[in-house]
């Protein structure tokens, strides 16, 4: 690993002061006069480093502190406490120089001008970021190629579909070829095809320019496709920071075997396999599923047992879906094993 991380975050915290809103008309009037403030620790002593060229997935339930972290990393918000150095800048202090070296996409809202054609937005951004005509042309060609922007370059942004808009937003964020790209839920609301386009594009950019990417998402497929490293935040605290593979390896409790038996005669013999640790669930005609705890029984043993009893036509062994692991983490279980 290189000595100097590109982004370095130490004990970063952000506290907000909010007041409790009372309900109803009378409550609204009382709100005008007296407010009960409370302090919310949106981000609480978060520490991490990100190396150049890494793609890191940042996940957590709604309100966990993901967006607040991104806003501090992009210089929009000033932290309450802690240190943050990104690409050699303290983002909120040197905001205008710093933002030249980052690209930002907020999935929920566009960075483009609503009423003007996409290509005109790009031209304005070219001026804003001082991109030379030569670089602009070269990058637009790549974006056109991977993101297929050509068809709607002349359409005003407000007339684009969500998927088209997201592609344009991505291109806009990368027009000045920033070394760092922050994505806040880039695939939210997109269909499978559009999601795939976005992921392919991010891979391409990461490989070609070594762009460092930090992305928040609720779609864990994004992470599985793109990120080797994952950070999990909840209630403002960082719960896990490490390889996705390690998380899986340590926290994968169950696996499942799905198999298709030869015929119904064979299927009738299945109950003989069952015991207290082993439940067989029917999935489909002649298809069955066994979910098992891999700490109690090994895959090899289980397979031996199944194959000894019945004739199997097809068989598939799967990990527990990553969603299930993350659900357990959010629920507060299971993390001690990893963070220790």
């Amino acid at each position: 690993m290189p000595a100097a991380p590109l982004i370095s975050v130490r004990d970063l915290s952000k506290h907000f002061r909010t007041f409790k809103r009372r309900e109803g008309v009378w409550g609204a009037i009382r709100n005008l006069v007296k407010r009960d403030y409370q302090s919310v620790h949106a981000v609480d002593r978060v520490t991490f480093d990100i190396q150049p060229g890494e793609m890191v997935g940042y996940i957590g339930p709604n309100g966990a502190g993901k967006s607040t972290t991104i806003k501090m990393l992009t210089g929009i918000l000033v932290p309450t406490a802690g240190e943050l150095l990104s690409n050699g800048f303290v983002p909120w202090k040197q905001r205008r120089q710093y933002v030249k070296s980052i690209g930002v996409v907020f999935g929920q809202r566009t960075q483009l001008w609503w009423d003007i054609a996409v290509v005109e937005s790009f031209k304005l951004l070219r001026k804003i970021y001082d991109v030379s005509q030569h670089d602009y042309d070269a990058r637009m060609e790549l974006f056109n190629h991977v993101l297929k922007l050509k068809d709607y370059l002349d359409t005003p942004v407000r007339k684009l579909s969500l998927g088209e808009r997201m592609r344009c937003d991505l291109a806009a964020a990368l027009l000045h070829n920033p070394p760092i790209l922050f994505l806040d839920e880039p695939t939210i609301g997109l269909d499978v095809v559009a999601k795939d386009h976005i992921r392919q594009f991010l891979k391409e950019i990461n490989q070609r320019y070594r762009t460092t990417v930090l992305l928040t998402t609720h779609d864990l497929d994004d992470i599985e496709e793109l990120c080797k490293r994952i950070m999990i935040i909840d209630h403002g605290r960082l719960l896990y920071d490490g390889p996705l593979a390690l998380l899986k390896q340590k926290l994968l409790r169950t696996k499942q075997v799905k198999f298709v038996v030869k015929d119904s005669e064979q299927a009738a013999r299945l109950p003989a396999l069952e015991n207290d640790g082993l439940k067989i669930e029917p999935v489909d005609h002649l298809t069955y599923r066994i979910v098992f705890d891999r700490t109690k029984i090994s895959v090899a043993d289980l397979l031996r047992q199944i194959l000894a009893e019945v004739e199997v036509r097809d068989l598939l062994i799967e990990d527990e879906p990553i969603e299930e692991i993350v659900k357990r983490i959010y629920a507060g279980e299971a993390l001690k094993e990893v963070t220790a």
Partner: peptide
Amino acid sequence: EGKFDRVLLRPVA
């Protein structure tokens, strides 16, 4: 509506 975030992300006053 939150458009000011976008403003702060650009290298112009």
